[in-house]
Design a protein around this nucleic acid. Structure first.
Lengths: 235, 235
DNA sequence: CGACCGTTTGAGATCCTTCAATACCAGTGG
DNA sequence: CCACTGGTATTGAAGGATCTCAAACGGTCG
């Protein structure tokens, strides 16, 4: 990953990033001063589970995959952070998960030591990072319900709605930048079950699937019911 | 729940609680000043999903159950917070989950508004709460792996080891204060599968099960291998 | 055009669930 | 003291959802 100090040649304004939301301009410029920017190509690894957590990252552009690995190779993806998401917040010395680029990605990097120092001086930054961590926690807890208690159909419906929300899709068209394998590893399913479930939703007229990486949500209301598990017929 | 201001008649020292870990004594006494204590009997509800999150709680004694409900009644338990655990940290205005007492419980309560004010003035408190939230996040992410990718046997083994760790069990005896139903709702399994799996572990000589609510871990090493999914034969 | 890679579809096996019966334990009343 | 009752846990048998293995399909790229 090529890095450069943001102050010199960033193609974006650090102070406008999510990390700085709610901060006084002085604090924001402190952050800008310690930040650097970088890129990763699709498929590259940003950091691996167990690595020294010496930095906090913010995704500026693109999508990452954040996952944990069981010794025998089973994979669980915790999420697909995109623009505005912060990474490495919950790291207690070492990263608790691996982060890889799904698409080409632009990142902003803040050395953890500097962030730590700044946090003690700037209450609004402390609050910002706490809030971001809280949000991530609430999201993870929602995902616990999905993995523990939802059926394959409910899982896939939830996933499609999540994508639509992230992409603020207007006409119901969502782009699926990750592979079926990734979707399966995110939903706790196999690639075949994901594919079959998508086909079923298509047969039932809930979605259209013109190409594998593009889904059109035809009946958002019914999909939402499915996603929340208000199971009736589900024929 | 009977409440009383801690300053008056608490049966414990607020400053010694988890909430205050790492705080200067002045900050700790501020916390003590805004705290109140209470009790809940087993089965009572502390707060429900969607309730106004006007307080942060700390468990002083006993065990809670924290869960989310699907509209059709399916339940996912996120955890069983015990002594020293903080609750309601990730609440963005409303509680994201329901908290109920598994056993009789003693609690310490801090009004959120006061905590919020204090957080901006006391960096060490901000850090304390951020850290607690981070820890909870890391725990939830570990649980995602369990729910998404582990088999019933691996789930139950993980659960037993977690209990042992929480209880700092010396001789391998752990007390199971929650019902089989609760265990199932925590592991994403049915009560029958939990029971069958425990019986299997017993048959295989990995645990003893003198009474339903007490388990003795006979082969922690093998259980750990199981829990981490280094699957070989598993006969 | 043909090889390649990811996706879709099919058939059978497996794990977990569902439904149902039995066992166990504590408390109650005869 | 012991049968009875209710609640929880265990065990059994059958069914179903998802997985595994395998083949077919469909775009992309040389």
């Amino acid at each position: 990953m090529q890095l450069q100090t943001a102050a010199h040649a960033a193609s974006f304004d650090v102070a406008s990033l999510a990390m700085c939301r709610g901060l006084e301009s002085q604090a924001a410029s402190h952050l800008a001063a310690i930040s650097s920017t970088g890129k990763k190509a699709a498929g590259e690894t940003l950091f691996a589970e167990g690595d020294d957590a010496d930095c906090v990252y913010e995704v500026v552009k693109g999508t990452l995959r954040v996952c944990k690995l069981l010794p025998d190779g089973r994979l669980q993806i915790m999420g697909f952070p995109g623009s505005g998401h912060l990474l490495g917040l919950a790291a207690g010395g070492n990263h608790a998960y691996t982060a890889e680029a799904v698409t080409d990605v632009t990142l902003c990097r803040y050395p953890r030591a500097s962030v730590d120092r700044l946090v003690d001086k700037v209450p609004s930054l402390a609050r910002r990072l706490w809030t971001a961590t809280s949000d991530e926690l609430r999201f993870a807890q929602q995902q616990l319900v999905l993995l523990g208690r939802k059926t394959a159909t409910e899982k896939v419906a939830s996933f499609l709605l999540l994508l639509a929300e992230q992409q603020k899709s207007l006409d119901g068209t969502v782009f699926v930048s990750m592979s079926r394998t990734d979707i399966g590893d995110y939903l706790g399913l196999t690639i075949e079950t994901v594919s079959r479930t998508l086909s079923k939703l298509k047969r039932d007229g809930l979605i259209a699937l013109p190409v594998p990486d593009q889904v059109k949500l035809l009946d958002v209301e019914r999909l939402s019911e499915l996603a929340e598990g208000e199971s009736e017929s589900e024929a």
